[in-house]
Design a protein around this nucleic acid. Structure first.
Lengths: 191, 191
DNA sequence: TATTTAAGAATGAACGTTCATTCCGGACAA
DNA sequence: TTGTCCGGAATGAACGTTCATTCTTAAATA
């Protein structure tokens, strides 16, 4: 196995195990086993488990954002743009359930909370598409005039919840249900 | 300390530590310390840590449900009932942040998933108020005709997310913002 | 009332297990 | 041969749980 391949294998194994069993259900030895490397080898690629977890999350974000924004254009109407992003996000979660589960594990842990705090205070780049859309929607009076954080909750809260239900098997979403769910989210944020 | 007091102290300590640090950030020794009892004493009241965690959750539900339903009446209009329950829920979470954090920890763990699976399949009693409201709302064509699970996501997804943001300090909700948030949730589920 | 006794409650040191991390002998490339 | 990389046994810290012992209390006895 070449060097970058090995790193790749470790990432894949860690993502899968953590997504399915949580951080504490994915010991380093088990990750090594699944990746087909020795336990010590992981530490040649990642300083420690915390670093592995954080880098895994950043890789995931870098995969996800471009995928969601494909075909997105700021020229289209606000509503259409909202539906585009919401649908793309929900579809992504359904298509890559491991990514979604990892995302959830991360967000519902001290890692995620700290990360989010940095992001909100530090004005990170990535989610500016969402922020821009909401700010424009509010300015044009097409969306409710509520604090951005609340708008995010109204829009993403249901998407995350519904994605979890789909992945855990509590509901089975088809194309129609996805669209209608996202349209319902729009009803929540629109003026 | 009398016997029931001791059990109470252990519950309180466990709830607080788990709410703040998660299940793995709350070792039995630490819980015992905080409760002012010996490590072994916990096992006189709870068979093991799993039982402690589950009973803590059930106690919490029993505290929460009556509190939310206070003043609730099935005679009032659908919308009014929805606003009542939503507001009461969000208020409860804000007033008892430890309860909310514990609830989240529980739901985002294998305990919670199994519990939920039992609940959905086993038709448990407690959340029938919500279920009844939605079923009536749909039947009367005042709410969107979507699967119940999705309706729950649309209504509770934002409430949970916004409650978390409030508790983590990302937003500061006053009376007006609470009302407007819940009304926005209604816009999401209404026809 | 004062003293003894027994039963149950509480304790915390000790145990076995699990885990992240380290370390060193060997395999392979140059 | 020399240097680099890898594997997995070794390490020690942390955890949940147990159990031999101590403490508390109240009934029984004198």
């Amino acid at each position: 196995m070449t060097k970058p391949d090995k790193r790749e294998e470790i990432s894949r194994a860690a993502l899968e195990l953590i997504a399915e069993n949580g951080f504490h259900g994915a010991p380093m030895a088990m990750i090594a086993d699944k990746a087909g490397v020795g336990a010590g080898t992981i530490y040649r690629y990642f300083e420690n488990k915390d670093v592995l977890i954080t880098e895994l999350y950043q890789d995931l974000e870098e995969r996800m954002y471009p995928c969601i924004q494909e075909g997105y254009s700021t020229d289209k109407p606000i509503r259409e743009r909202f539906i585009h992003l919401g649908t793309a996000l929900l579809r992504y979660f359904i298509e890559y359930p491991l990514d979604f589960r990892y995302l959830e594990q991360f967000h519902n842990s001290p890692y995620g909370t700290d990360y989010r705090r940095d992001k909100i205070l530090g004005d990170k780049e990535e989610c500016h598409v969402f922020r821009d859309l909401f700010e424009e929607g509010i300015a044009r009076q097409e969306m409710k005039n509520l604090p951005l954080v609340i708008m995010f909750s109204l829009a993403f809260g249901p998407i995350l919840t519904v994605a979890r239900d789909q992945i855990l098997g509590f509901v089975s979403l088809d194309q129609v249900l996805i669209t209608r769910s996202i349209e319902a989210c729009w009803d929540g944020v629109k003026r």
